[in-house]
Simulated assay, not measured.
Amino acid sequence: MKKLLTVLLFSASSLAFAHNCPNEMKTIDAKLSSASGVSAENMSKVKELRAEGEKLHKEGKHAESMKSLQEAKKLLGI
């Protein structure tokens, strides 16, 4: 019974990550269009991390995607 519960909780958390990746990408995209005070170097890194996050999301690697997207948000000051 504990194994079943663990599997269900893990599945639910994976789905939550899967559905949150697009929201994180939208947040980054919105900030990119109005970002000021972000260096060109950081802006380039943000775009790379955002693209990597989308690629990982499409591959089903949601935890890695979220990590990349969170780093992009951090650089943007979100």
Rank of each mutant, 00 (worst) to 15 (best):
M1L: 14
M1G: 15
M1D: 14
M1W: 07
K2D: 15
K3L: 15
K3V: 12
L4D: 14
L4K: 13
L5S: 13
T6S: 05
V7M: 15
V7R: 14
V7S: 14
V7G: 13
F10D: 12
F10G: 14
S11H: 09
S11Q: 04
A12Q: 12
S14Y: 09
S14A: 13
L15T: 02
A16H: 09
A16Y: 09
A16Q: 08
A16R: 04
A16G: 09
F17R: 09
F17A: 07
F17V: 05
F17M: 11
A18R: 10
A18D: 06
H19A: 15
N20Y: 07
P22F: 04
P22T: 06
N23C: 04
N23I: 06
E24M: 15
M25W: 03
K26W: 06
T27P: 05
T27N: 05
T27M: 08
I28E: 03
I28S: 02
D29P: 11
D29Q: 15
D29K: 08
D29I: 13
D29S: 13
A30H: 02
K31V: 07
L32E: 02
S33M: 07
S33N: 14
S34R: 07
S34T: 13
S34E: 10
A35W: 00
A35H: 02
G37R: 08
G37H: 13
A40C: 00
A40R: 10
E41K: 14
E41Y: 05
E41F: 12
N42W: 08
N42Q: 13
N42R: 12
S44T: 13
S44I: 11
S44A: 15
S44F: 14
K45R: 15
K45C: 11
K45E: 15
K45Y: 10
V46E: 00
V46Q: 01
V46A: 11
K47W: 08
K47D: 12
E48V: 12
L49R: 02
L49C: 07
L49N: 10
L49A: 01
A51L: 07
E52P: 03
E52S: 12
G53R: 07
G53T: 01
G53M: 04
G53Q: 00
E54I: 08
E54M: 02
E54A: 11
K55D: 09
K55C: 01
L56M: 05
L56Q: 10
L56V: 06
H57F: 02
H57N: 09
H57E: 04
K58P: 00
E59I: 04
E59C: 05
G60H: 01
H62W: 04
H62M: 01
A63L: 12
E64S: 01
K67F: 05
K67R: 05
S68D: 03
S68L: 02
S68F: 01
L69C: 05
L69D: 10
L69K: 01
Q70M: 06
Q70Y: 05
Q70A: 08
Q70P: 00
E71P: 01
E71A: 09
A72Y: 04
A72R: 02
K74L: 06
K74N: 04
K74I: 04
L75Y: 03
L76N: 02
I78G: 03
I78P: 03
